[in-house]
């Protein structure tokens, strides 16, 4: 037995986070230098450091940078939300969309498309839809005064199914030319991404708040009663978790539609390889999620260019083998 596993672990955690941050930076450079228009590393440096109005500069500043930063933020939000949702529901199969947030957002967005509103109103309505879902599920799961993860999960899953029906209904009565825009909300796509200004603020606040809850979260994994016995105020913590996860998901869905798979798998890959300490897991999930989505999006737009692939396809292509490999190698089990 090594005398100080704890301090060693802290150093190791720092190293992991540093490596993941470097990976994010690497993916960002890769994303900015790959695409239909050739931009080399030195070109990129010139474009960033000098003030010019060349085609390359336009492509980097107007197209690639907003999209890359959006991918980072959305990926980080989804992975973080997935991680929180899995603890809240104590269910390894939980993902950010399981409680119907994306359904609410999609209905909001589809409604604006059908009404012929502009893209700003669409984002706003998507966010409002997500918030309506948040309050609806919370209110319903809460009404009898007996709040439990199972009750919450059931309420959320059924509400999500309800949204699904509304979406199908809207799709079947919508006009042909509206369908293109509607499919976006169901598939998830970063091509319409803008610079993620206010969304990155949402992300940073949620990350800090959830990080502050990290140690109680570790206790929650052992069950509500156990957490209570060790001095966690379980009920406020659950509400906090629910709000944080929903807010993150709503923000992500508003930017890029519902990109599947990422929020489910990234936290699991990290749990299997780094352990279950949320003080490491939460920031690591955010970094890894951002990195994975950015890489996937870069591949999606360059792999068979000029044809563009749905980013969800690539996240699955990368995520599935990585997850299965980690699952095989890991000596930690999943219950």
């Amino acid at each position: 037995m090594i005398p100080s596993t704890v301090s060693q672990q802290q150093q190791r955690n720092l190293l992991y986070l540093l490596l993941l941050a470097l990976a994010c930076l690497g993916s960002l450079v890769l994303a900015l230098t790959s695409g239909s228009i050739e931009i080399s590393l030195s070109d990129l440096w010139q474009v960033i450091t000098t003030d010019q109005t060349s085609l390359q500069s336009t492509v980097v500043h107007e197209l690639r940078l907003p999209r890359a930063l959006s991918a980072l933020i959305v990926g980080a939000q989804l992975a973080l939300a997935g991680c929180l949702m899995q603890v809240l529901l104590r269910n390894p199969l939980a993902d950010p969309y399981v409680l119907g947030v994306s359904g609410g957002a999609a209905v909001g967005a589809l409604f604006s498309i059908m009404m012929g509103l502009g893209s700003f109103a669409m984002s706003a309505n998507a966010f409002i839809g997500a918030m309506v879902n948040l309050l609806l599920v919370f209110g319903l799961a809460h009404s009898q005064g007996s709040w439990s993860p199972t009750r919450l999960l059931l309420t959320g899953v059924v509400t999500a199914a309800g949204w699904g029906a509304v979406i199908s209904f809207m799709l079947s009565i919508s006009q042909d030319h509206q369908l293109t825009g509607m499919v976006f909300w169901l598939m998830g796509d970063l091509s319409r991404a803008q610079l993620p200004g206010q969304h990155s603020l949402v992300f940073i606040i949620c990350l800090l708040l959830s990080w502050a809850l990290a140690r109680p979260l570790n206790l929650m994994l052992r069950g509500e009663m156990q957490a209570k016995a060790l001095g966690v105020s379980v009920y406020p913590l659950q509400i906090g978790l629910y709000l944080l996860a929903s807010l993150l998901t709503a923000s992500a869905v508003t930017q890029a539609g519902s990109i599947g798979f990422l929020g489910l798998v990234v936290p699991h890959i990290l749990r299997l390889s780094l352990g279950t300490d949320h003080r490491l897991l939460l920031p690591a999930s955010a970094l890894a999620g951002g990195c994975l989505l950015l890489l996937a999006d870069t591949l999606a737009r360059t792999l068979i260019a000029p044809q563009q692939l749905p980013v969800g396809v690539i996240t699955a292509f990368i995520g599935v083998p990585v997850f299965l490999w980690v699952l095989q190698k890991s000596n930690r089990g999943l219950v």
Partner: peptide, 14 residues
């Protein structure tokens, strides 16, 4: 430059 519902903006610019 891609397909009508998914085209490559960069290539259009190029």
């Amino acid at each position: 430059v891609g397909s009508y519902n998914q085209f490559d903006l960069e290539r259009v610019l190029a």
